[in-house]
Design a protein around this nucleic acid. Sequence first.
DNA 1: GTATATCTATGATGCTTATCATACTCAACC
DNA 2: GGTTGAGTATGATAAGCATCATAGATATAC
Lengths: 229, 229
Amino acid sequence: MDKLQLLKNTTIFSSLTPPDLSVVSSLFIEEGFEKEEFILTEGDPPNWLCIVKEGNIKMVKHSPSGRDMIMAVMSAGDVIGEVAVFDGGPYPATAQGMGNGTILKISRRDFISLLKKYPSVALEIIGDLGRKLRGAMNVARELRGERVEGRIAMVLLKLARKLGTPVDGGVDLSIHFTRQDIADMVGSTIETTIRVISRFKKEGIVRDSKGKMTLDVKRLESILKEIEI
Amino acid sequence: MDKLQLLKNTTIFSSLTPPDLSVVSSLFIEEGFEKEEFILTEGDPPNWLCIVKEGNIKMVKHSPSGRDMIMAVMSAGDVIGEVAVFDGGPYPATAQGMGNGTILKISRRDFISLLKKYPSVALEIIGDLGRKLRGAMNVARELRGERVEGRIAMVLLKLARKLGTPVDGGVDLSIHFTRQDIADMVGSTIETTIRVISRFKKEGIVRDSKGKMTLDVKRLESILKEIEI
DNA sequence: GTATATCTATGATGCTTATCATACTCAACC
DNA sequence: GGTTGAGTATGATAAGCATCATAGATATAC
């Protein structure tokens, strides 16, 4: 799959005509990233806007006390860094590779002029930001409302929906998440997360062999139902 | 202060010329609200976009277990409901009056056509959404990182910056927040919040007489510094 | 194959905080 | 002026989870 093909399938450029798309495409640079590599760093000046091409990227927010928070996991077609590129402020979070992959990046300068040239892109960005805002608000609410077991069930469900492939007996997660990753998504510690997931494994809600997790979506949902009573 | 005057000072319309502004102004309806009144309700279809004219409004996200989370406090010039109006999905949070006040509201239909007519407004909305996204991500991180005492110090500081008026000996909060409100902002319970604030009062960091709080900003900041070591 | 590192696992302990219970304070209202 | 209700206060108790410690499992490197 080439640059053009990816951009065509990216929501923020979905309204562009093929000729416009190839103009836009020429402004993007392709670049590889590796596991754990920092693609953007929280607090840095917003020189680049990126679009994920291959692989997965976690958006991490660091806290002074050293406990990280994974705000979201991005995959092909997702846009990264647009908030900062737009208002000129520092990146609000760090983008870190979860494995090898590639991104397309465009300089802030080029992106701003592109926006002026194609106003329809601005409308798509509003939609994109709206979705992200909804997501962030949900993270905040979930951290507050339920306890760790429920939050882990929620996060596993979210991952299953975004990245899962159905197999018999459940849904496979295509990426490997360590217990630490999951702890950072639900706002807990690695030990507590291990304990909860071990319990899920004993109950057959989760299976994992060599890092690939298989989830029993139905039963995860029913855990959440019970909580919501 | 009339409608026109307020809209002129609203960020999302800051780029419009006076004649355009009066066209826009005519599309807005003025409406009063009372303490605790629901101005928008989470989950409802997005028929209106609102701008706060007078008074203050809290954005509340309900959780299944009944524990509310106050995501933000809005005051004059702030925009409410734009995410939903834009993508057509349900409102992501409830907007509730914190006292008497007034809003300006515009129908979804009118707002969408206004956006098409004045593309510069779209750019301002991107900025607005970006700020909100930054805010929501910070809420999520704070909930995770620190414990209640630090989170309350943080929230009080944020309120002091947004709504405070300097007086000798500190900063006065112009609105009355109950302990429950503050608990809902930091993700805690009313009892714990009362205990922490009582401690702050004993230490002279917070004073309150008939509901008006006076904050010692310096010392609140130093509490956070200590935590961040 | 052994070594090294990373991830997972599990126990013991105690801190924070939620929860339950009860009482006090103050303002509003008939 | 007493009644009512909302907000504030404070103690007792225990649930939930973080923290510390240690060990096994699995992968990667030499």
